[in-house]
Amino acid sequence: MHKKFNIGIFDSGVGGLSLVNKIKQKLPKENIIYFADKANGFYGTKTEREIKELCKLYAEFLHENQCKIILIASSSAACAALPYLQEKFDFPVLGPIEENIKAALKETKNNHISILTSPFTAFKKVYEDEIKKYSLDIKYETITVSPLSNLVENGWNNFLDNEIILKKSLKNISLDSDTIILGSSYLSLIKDDIKKNLKNKNIIDPADQWIKDLYKTLYKMNLLNDQEKSGRLEFFVNKDLDKFKKVSENYLKNSIDVYQIF
């Protein structure tokens, strides 16, 4: 495997763009291929078997396009398929959940954590199970925030009522909780808005945890790209190309090329 090979990212939509931004800031020489599974909507509403089949297909696509490592940006996809993909393939496949938990446990001062995530991830109790591996003294709560996903996916600032819906989605967070995990990738794209509504609470952004794990893995495998020029970006979707391009350019604050596949 070559250092100049790509970092592959896949998500059900635009959520993983927060990770793209972080990689371009911290590892600007890396080449990135991003695949958005727009044809299948949000993974949080699918069965585990359906998610595994989709993840296998897209991991194969990314690897065939010279990806040296694959990041599953969707927490629903990661909790359903990460162990399966790690066992099936001989290249590194990373998910966000473990690193999010480690960061939250370091930040909390009163051992009370809230996790904002999708219905599927909440149902699977993967965050709860991961917390118990590290501590039995932590209080935690999982809060589903599904109404926010549609707003982010279609352009957060396009909705005049986004702040109202955000407040409603966050109202069930315990006052005692001092640390909030953004347990779905798309929440990173509206982190600043969430922070305004959750003052004096620690916010665990998965993009921040991703970049640490990504750097550590590439460094250990001697796969950090050392080319002189900045890395390239390629985007692929299987539906709604024009809409994805428009929304993504707003989040990335840059023009991008997007290609239709599948």
Rank of each mutant, 00 (worst) to 15 (best):
K22W: 02
Q25M: 08
N31A: 08
N31M: 07
I33A: 12
A36G: 00
A36H: 03
K38Q: 14
A39D: 05
F42C: 09
T45M: 07
T45A: 14
K46W: 07
T47R: 09
T47G: 00
L54N: 08
C55L: 06
C55R: 05
L57C: 08
A59L: 15
A59M: 12
C67P: 07
K68W: 03
I70E: 01
A73D: 14
S74L: 10
S74G: 09
S75A: 13
S76M: 09
A78F: 00
A78E: 02
A78M: 02
C79L: 05
A80R: 11
A80M: 03
L82H: 03
L82N: 06
L85Y: 06
E87Q: 10
F91M: 04
P92I: 04
P92C: 11
P92A: 10
L94W: 03
P96F: 06
I97E: 07
N100E: 06
K102I: 09
K106T: 11
T108W: 12
T108V: 10
H112D: 05
I113Y: 00
S114H: 00
P119W: 02
F120L: 05
A122K: 14
K124M: 10
E128C: 11
D129E: 12
E130Q: 13
K132D: 03
S135Q: 09
S135E: 11
L136N: 14
I138Y: 04
K139Q: 15
E141H: 06
I143G: 04
I143K: 03
V145R: 05
V145P: 01
N150G: 14
G155M: 02
G155F: 04
N158F: 11
